[in-house]
């Protein structure tokens, strides 16, 4: 499998990254070199193999539904590009 320019543009849009027309050829070529390497996995029959999602075998722990901290709004917003009265401010999303 490989990708074309249109697919690259769709991926970029999904990832909210802009690829300029000048960069497009290089991006597609580089991605395809790597995707070509992925195709090596087709050699292996994995029909009866379970996917591995947990490498340590530890079960994920659940915590009790309790409030254990909070009340530090100033800290949470301290790195925000734009804040107003403790809220994150973004461009208008509803007309």
């Amino acid at each position: 499998m490989s990708i074309d320019k249109l697919t690259a543009k769709t991926l970029a849009n999904l990832a909210r990254i802009k690829i300029s027309e000048d960069e497009l050829d290089d991006v597609v070529e580089n991605l395809n070199t790597i995707i070509l390497m992925f195709n090596k996995l087709d050699e292996v029959d994995t029909l009866r193999v379970e996917p591995l999602t947990n490498i340590t075998g530890n079960f994920l722990s659940q915590s009790d539904d309790l409030i254990i901290d909070g009340g530090y709004q100033n800290q949470i917003t301290s790195n925000a590009p734009k804040v107003d009265r403790g809220f994150f401010v973004v461009p208008r999303v509803i007309d």
Partner: peptide, 8 residues
């Protein structure tokens, strides 16, 4: 497929 490879 990659997750299955991880198991192998």
């Amino acid at each position: 497929k990659a997750q299955k490879m991880r198991n192998l």
